[in-house]
Amino acid sequence: MAFRRGDVLVFAKPPVIAAWAAAGGKKEKQGPLAGGFDFLTEDTAFTEEDCPNWEQAESHLQQKAIDACLRKAGISHKEVELTFAGDLQAQCTASSYTMRGVQAPYAGVYGACSTMAETLALAAAFTGSGLARQVLAFTSSHFCAAERQFRTPLEYGAKRTPTAQWTATAAGACLLRGPGSTGIPVLSVTFGRVQDYAVHDINNMGAAMMPAAASTLLQYFAGTGTRPEDFDAILTGDLGQVGSDLLLQQMEREGVPLPNHQDCGCLLYDLGSGNVQAGGSGAGCSASVLCAHVLPKLLHGEWRRVLFLSTGALMSQTTFLQGESIPGIAHCVELGCEEGAK
């Protein structure tokens, strides 16, 4: 069973991530983590599969990740007992349309770019407490679907600001099983609290989300009595270069400097090349980096214990236009390595 330490839910007998998969598009294929992906395509519109629009293309991408994940787990759709999933599209349609074809029990989740850690945390809580044996957690983002919904048409000519981040065309899926199974153990999860420090610049999401990441990390360290040095890596979701700089500064000021911080948004692409600016973003960014980079490293024993924090910006286009500031959230998942669990 699990017990609470402040905001941290600690699993005495940890559930495990038994299988995982990452799917990505063209830019992800050119990025440094390409080797870790299970599926990559240049055809991000899925024209070869007669996909009619960008929203459905995102569902296609999710399906690729889910199929690869379940194949690795050696199970069929029917054996999934519960699914937590979400995405950036209005009303989370990418995930819901994907679940039409999966026909497993499904709870839609919205956490913007924090969705991977959020669904993972929920899935871990359910498998850890025995409420379900096999739970699927997945999320995605698609550059084209996000751009046309949140910004401007793809054909519109605009110059990106240096703090702008590139929405990843990527998906990540994890299958979780109860304690005692083989896989990467989820040692604890921490649901974050919404933080808003009055950032209004929609082209500087990393700055908007940083306080949420710092807050959740501080809750975690205070609750568990651990220090950053106890981990091989502390990974934030998509703070990008600007948000990462700010996080290091803030944690230093709090007396908890982070010597081993990495940001998924900075790992996914070669920064400074091809319009990426301050790094990657989108729910699929941390999801695909988790599945293509973090989990494999834990599997191979290169890392033994890490914190994985997905960060999300919780505004909508409406609240943005109404002049509201951008609230952020960060959820934290503590991951171990296989030997550690036994």
Binding site: Y197, A198, V199
Partner: peptide, 20 residues
């Protein structure tokens, strides 16, 4: 947290690279 919105605004301005 040792942070307030005003102070943070300054921090963000300093950390954000200016347009060339």
């Amino acid at each position: 947290m040792k942070l307030n919105p005003k102070q943070y605004d300054q921090m963000v301005k300093k950390a954000s690279p200016p347009s060339p």
